[in-house]
């Protein structure tokens, strides 16, 4: 978001589709993360669009198809958090693709030839509940701060503090973990750009393969 220099009002910056290969992620934070991953892989021919909200994906895909730049798009990858049901997450993405009259893959990580070619990745995987935060925490399991993070939540439980709900635990742990870094204020995506997550970890192997195949 930019601000007007005269009135300080927020100016909404419009997204411009510039590349043939698109990676559609869930929100701006994920967009920053995947941009860091692309830099790490040395891939600059893929554009990350941090747009894919869970409920609006179909409308957003329809809108993208109406954009004049859409005709240059040859391949898209969609990354979606598994949350508490990886199968439901995959089905939800497929339903949005079908509604937008785009090719629908039969399974995750399997490309459906287009144009555009479409593939879907569920994070952390189609066999596991969770989200991008779970992968990041797993990649940093050996970080010296991680035991302190675990202890913090154990301490909360021992003292009867309400603490985060189970479904938000990895998001909470991510925030706490990132406060251990030099700049303690960064969200997950910018933290990736700062090198706070080890993007070369084998935990991200599947993500790297997916991105490279778009």
């Amino acid at each position: 978001m930019a601000t007007c220099p005269e009135c300080n009002a927020v100016i909404e910056e419009k997204l411009v589709v510039r590349k043939e290969r698109l990676l559609i992620a869930e929100g701006k934070d994920d967009e920053q993360f995947f941009n860091a991953m692309l830099r790490q892989l040395g891939l600059d021919e893929i554009q990350v669009l941090g747009i894919g909200g869970k409920t609006r994906l179909e409308g957003q895909l329809k809108a993208l198809k109406l954009d004049p730049a859409w005709r240059q798009v040859s391949s898209i990858g969609i990354v979606r958090d598994a949350d508490d049901d990886p199968d439901a997450a995959f089905r939800s993405v497929c339903s949005a693709l079908k509604g937008a009259k785009l090719p629908v893959p039969s399974k995750a990580l399997a490309p459906m030839v287009g144009p555009p070619t479409v593939q879907v990745m569920i994070i952390p995987s189609l066999r596991k509940e969770g989200a991008l935060e779970d992968l990041c925490l797993e990649s940093s399991a050996d970080d010296p701060a991680m035991p302190c993070v675990e202890q913090y939540f154990e301490c909360l439980a021992e003292r009867g503090a309400p603490g985060p709900k189970e479904r938000s635990l990895s998001k909470a742990k991510t925030r706490v973990f990132l406060t251990s870094k030099e700049d303690p204020t960064l969200p997950l995506g910018i933290a990736a750009q700062k090198g706070y997550w080890p993007l070369d970890s084998s935990v991200f192997d599947e993500v790297r393969r997916f991105i490279a195949s778009i």
Binding site: E12, K14, L15, R56, G59, Q60, K62, A63, K65, L66
Partner: peptide
């Protein structure tokens, strides 16, 4: 639906 989608991106 597509206009809502476009405005939410925003395109």
């Amino acid at each position: 639906e597509s206009l809502e989608g476009a405005l939410s991106i925003p395109l």
